[in-house]
């Protein structure tokens, strides 16, 4: 690349992006989520998915699961940047451990009649989605699975009268007896 005249060096690295799922154990205190999100927006990192909830109320611990993309160097930076925040206990790269399970829950509203309605039910059954609300012209399905499975289900519902989707984002946990 021809360098434009600038006070900064303009880099064009072509390292491929990777997707990583990070589990972040934090002190549950006011502002902690804002700190994490602010870090991502402030430093230009991507958030593909983010979930957070208190996991141990006595110890005031929350677990944040973040799916992010970046070059290997950026992913390493993200982990260090998270880890050095005062209320952060641990950062675990679930993708690197290669032994993690990821799940997401989605609620999918579909509206239609006749053949479309029957087809939607049939597909829901195949995907082990549950009907959690129904009217004569609509269903709400509840589906859990990994992100790909949910994406696929939503794609299939689209021509059948997809109205709206609400997703929780990804939660992840390691296999085996050990905790993080």
């Amino acid at each position: 690349m021809n360098q434009p005249a600038s006070a900064y060096f303009i880099e064009d690295r072509h390292d491929p992006n990777e997707t990583h799922t990070l589990a972040v154990l934090v002190q549950n205190e006011p502002g902690v989520l804002a700190r994490v999100i602010g870090l991502f927006s402030g430093r230009g990192y991507n958030i593909e998915s983010l979930t957070v909830s208190e996991t141990e109320s006595q110890k005031h611990l929350s677990r944040i699961t973040i799916v992010t993309t970046g070059t290997p160097m950026v992913i390493e930076q993200i982990k260090h940047q998270l880890d050095r925040m005062i209320p952060v206990y641990r950062v675990v790269d679930m993708t690197l451990t290669k032994r993690s399970i990821e799940r997401e829950l989605a609620m999918v509203k579909v509206r239609g009649q006749g053949e479309h309605r029957v087809e939607a039910l049939r597909l829901a059954d195949a995907f082990r989605a549950r009907v959690i609300d129904a009217t004569t012209e609509s269903f709400v399905f509840e589906i859990t699975g990994n992100t790909d499975k949910i994406n696929q289900f939503i794609d299939l519902m689209r021509p059948l009268g997809l109205v709206e989707v609400s997703r929780t984002g990804v939660a992840a946990i390691g296999r085996g007896p050990e905790g993080m």
Binding site: P4, A5, S6, Y8, I10
Partner: peptide, 9 residues
């Protein structure tokens, strides 16, 4: 030494 475009970045 400074040959290049004129864009300011």
């Amino acid at each position: 030494a400074f040959a290049g475009g004129k864009a300011l970045v």
